[in-house]
Computed example of a mutant assay.
Amino acid sequence: MNDDQLLRYSRQIMLPDFGVEAQQRLNDAHVLIIGAGGLGSPAALYLAAAGVGRLTIADPDRVDVSNLQRQILHGQRDLDRPKVDSARERLADINPDTRVVPIAERLEDAALQAAVAAADLVVDASDNFATRFAVNAACWQAGRALVSGAAIRYEGQLSVFRGDLAAGPCYQCLYRDGTEAEQTCAENGILAPIVGIIGSLQALEAIKVLTGLGEPLDGRLLILDGRSLELRTLKLHPDPDCPVCSGTRVQTPAHPAGTG
């Protein structure tokens, strides 16, 4: 790192158990963010500000006026622009050292597998079960950690699934066959700070996994109730019959977080 970077990240570098080594890990890291909406916006902003060296952002949508209430990557002047274009511009203003790679399409099948395999970690900020299941399977297949978030109305959820360690449950262990009713912000509404909180926490968990800092939310589900500001954490258990992870899961992590 040069002197300007050392100054930019000085407030992180001075933290106990962080230091220059952890900062260098962030600078060298490549994170794939699925979705540049309510969750992806704060996640991308904080990961770029923290110094993640490369962010690939995939989102097929254009900015709509209804997005501006919560999707803080985008502004009034970005209406009808591809979200990934306004995201790249905004993130370059936050931190020009972060390389932003936009993908203005829905990642599926081989393209999704290739994008996941090329990254060190994946942040799932999508808004539907089909995408979440596909991203989860691609992460487990490629051996990549997945930071998964969701938010609706006044509630939010967050978890970390360790495909990089082939340990613990995966996303499909939690939701089984995806028969739960699909819920969208367009149909149910969303309070803007809820996605801000969950997306920021996704950035925090990504940083923890990438640097080996603290205890990531592996195998646990954080549930936020914004109306009462209550936080609950539930222990998740692997599904022995899970079609994604049951055949390859190990019981003990193969190496410490952040060293892969």
Rank of each mutant, 00 (worst) to 15 (best):
N2D: 14
L7S: 13
R11T: 09
Q12E: 02
I13T: 13
P16Y: 13
F18C: 08
G19L: 14
E21L: 08
A22G: 13
A22M: 13
L26Q: 03
D28S: 11
D28V: 02
I34A: 06
L39H: 11
G40S: 08
P42R: 09
Y46L: 13
A48M: 04
A48G: 15
G51Q: 05
V52K: 08
T56W: 07
A58I: 11
P60S: 07
R62N: 14
V63P: 00
V63M: 06
D64W: 02
D64L: 06
S66T: 13
N67K: 00
L68M: 11
L73T: 12
L79A: 09
D85P: 10
R90F: 02
L91A: 12
L91C: 04
A92S: 15
P96K: 11
D97E: 12
P102V: 09
P102I: 03
L107T: 05
L107N: 12
L107V: 10
V116S: 04
A117L: 06
A118K: 07
A118H: 03
A119Q: 01
A125T: 08
A125H: 05
S126N: 07
S126Q: 10
D127W: 01
F129G: 01
A130F: 12
T131F: 00
T131C: 07
R132N: 00
F133Y: 15
A134T: 03
A138Y: 03
W140C: 02
G143C: 12
R144Y: 02
A145P: 06
L146P: 02
L146I: 07
S148Y: 04
A151N: 03
Y154A: 10
S159R: 04
F161G: 00
F161T: 01
R162C: 08
D164E: 06
A166G: 08
G168Y: 04
C170S: 07
Q172K: 14
D177K: 12
G178Y: 05
Q183A: 13
T184V: 11
I190G: 01
L191A: 15
P193H: 15
P193Y: 13
I194F: 09
V195H: 01
V195A: 11
G196L: 05
G196R: 03
I197C: 10
L201G: 06
A203D: 04
K208R: 12
V209L: 10
L210M: 06
T211E: 03
G212T: 13
G212A: 12
P216V: 08
R220N: 13
L222I: 14
D225I: 04
R227N: 15
S228F: 10
L229A: 07
L229N: 15
L231V: 12
L231W: 13
L234I: 06
L234R: 09
K235M: 08
H237Y: 12
H237D: 12
C242N: 05
P243I: 07
S246H: 01
V250P: 00
Q251P: 02
